[in-house]
Write a protein that binds this DNA or RNA. Structure first.
Lengths: 203, 203, 203, 203
DNA sequence: CATGAATGAGGCTTCATTCAT
DNA sequence: GATGAATGAAGCCTCATTCAT
């Protein structure tokens, strides 16, 4: 990711490269081996630092994990904001948002056999960072639904749903795609889910 | 401690009471505290047996976990078979199947804060037992879709999907409901998802 | 200490020998190397048990230490009670009490270069056990002083002290002997201190 | 951080300020938190220098501790010399010496809950500095006893002691006062001990 | 001289598993 | 079969010390 940037300035400021290296190494290991099967020793080795160095940047294994989650949440927020900024037809726009959100989860997390452990820990320790970006996502979908209603493209009432319920249902259904076994399946299922649920909301 | 207890019948069958007690205790603890935070000591205490006894019935903690999964898979299979045997209108029947499957996962597993850890472990260790019942479930939904097509109630082609793809999409979408925060939400979302996706498959 | 006593009964009761072995090993090591320079590993090795076994008998290093202090306090209490029970002339009786108390401290604790660390820790963690026996000791000396006054052997008022102050002063002065460099010096100094202070209290 | 500070004079002498600051900070921390609970990091922070700087002035944590002891020993030597120089009646003079010695220990060291740890370390690492001043103290008391004998105020033989033994006993008894729980008690007990032991040495 | 990031040995504790009774 | 005391590998974390800047 960061290739040629270890300028003197960066070095002076507490070697942020090292922090990044630790986060990267830890994320990689957590994804491949799970939280509990990854020891601080492993992380240190993977990041090419000494065990003690980890504790210069993170107070504990848990806090390192939390930092990773925050970092992931930030990245997800960026991807979502980008998708939200695009101007596209309804279905395309919804798909873009869904792909940003679910694809992120799928790619970075559920791609690993220990993803759910990551996600799980997410619920216990550092829920905050993810809650924020999740709220942002729900809001974007709700706005899209409202716009569709105004355009006459959608009519949630026909399906017995309020606008908000419709948005929540669209999201809930799309979440199912995260569990796809491979990326191709994931994209296909996500597209199908979006198409079917949108068709179900048509006037 | 326990010298002359348990009936002869129980004795003959290898004291199945004890094995069941262990499984029940372990399931309970795993659900409440997660796999890694539950020690064999805890399980033994909860099952009112000695630690060593656990190893008379299960080779290791992992194998105990696998046994739990098998037990859960059996229970799920029973619930699914029951739902599949009922005669109901298309939407009701699909909802019954979905509730059997997703509701089971939701109730028994996702209801706990450590559910995903359980599920995750599922993927690593004992995928087999769940794969079988999952295949059974997919088959039931596919049969339902085919029947709907024959009845003229569904037309996957209109949505650009084969019958099999339609079934997979219905399932994938419904899976999203598992993540609901509470049971009421779960049931509402599952119903909405089923309704919307089915509407999307109408001719 | 306990040579031939590991009867089956003893074994069954949680192998108290082992607990004693641990306490003995730990006391020895603490005395020779100090609390912080003695690792649980060292203690385990000296007691011929595995590291984990220590935690079957004591919750933590600190609690092991506290147990040692309690054990010492009990031993001291026994020695004091024994001395207090003897019938002797005033000076001899006082000396017997002092030797029981100061000698105990001297022998078991101050004999080691890390004694004060033991004592110090004593003040922080488990002061209770020692406080009790200390109170018992002060009480015994005070009773002795009062008896001396009744007998006409002592007259604290001549030195401007109440009976209680006289007792406290006798004790305080005797404490100084604990710091003697070797046992011979200790006994000689204690005797001299007792004699001089008692002479100072004569009518 | 500190670029252009400290006067040229200070610079020339090797910045003695800094060395003193370190010693002062370390003494303070050792007294409040004990040797092992005080990290080099803590000392550096309290002295407002970098951790590495400590090692420019002291080879190790132990040597820093030794330096502190030497510094304390010097201070004690000054106090003793001052008391020894005064012209006072026997009891007053002895009390002055005792207060200088025991009071110093009491104030600077036993005043802290970790005092004995300090004292203990004293015995291991840097006994030398304290031995010298201790010898000086014993010598002063011995001279005082001899002078008392010449004056006819004291007669150790009556108590069965040589002059040297009498001096050692006076000191040993006074040491007990160091353990007083508070300064008022300390002063009272020291005075009582001196009075009683001196009375015991009277002709 | 001064800095403080980096090091890594070493400490305490947990827990899955074994085995003598 | 049943027990639970014992084991010891492995984990997380601390901190005295070093060294490049």
């Amino acid at each position: 990711m960061s290739t040629a940037k270890s300028s003197l300035a960066a070095q002076r400021a507490g070697a942020p490269d090292k922090r990044e290296a630790i986060v990267a190494a830890a994320l990689d290991l957590f994804r491949h081996y799970g939280y509990r099967r990854t020891s601080m020793e492993d992380i240190a080795r993977a990041a090419s630092v000494a065990k003690g160095t980890l504790y210069l940047y993170f107070e504990s294994k848990d806090q390192l994990f939390e930092a990773i989650c925050r970092s992931l949440a930030d990245e997800l927020a960026r991807a979502l904001a980008e998708a939200d900024a695009r101007t596209l037809p309804l279905e395309e726009k919804l798909l873009a948002l869904m792909e940003a959100k679910m694809g992120f989860v799928y790619d970075l997390i559920f791609s690993s056999p220990h993803a759910s452990e990551l996600i799980e820990s997410t619920r216990q320790l550092p829920s905050a960072p993810f809650e924020e970006v999740t709220a942002m996502f729900h809001d974007a979908v709700l706005r899209l639904v409202r716009q569709g209603v105004r355009n006459g493209e959608l009519d949630p009432k026909r399906a017995g749903l309020t606008e908000k319920e419709a948005a929540e249902t669209l999201i809930a259904a799309a979440i199912g795609a995260e569990k796809a076994a491979d990326e191709t399946t994931f994209r296909k299922q996500l597209r199908s889910i979006v198409r079917l649920t949108l068709r179900g909301l048509r006037p």
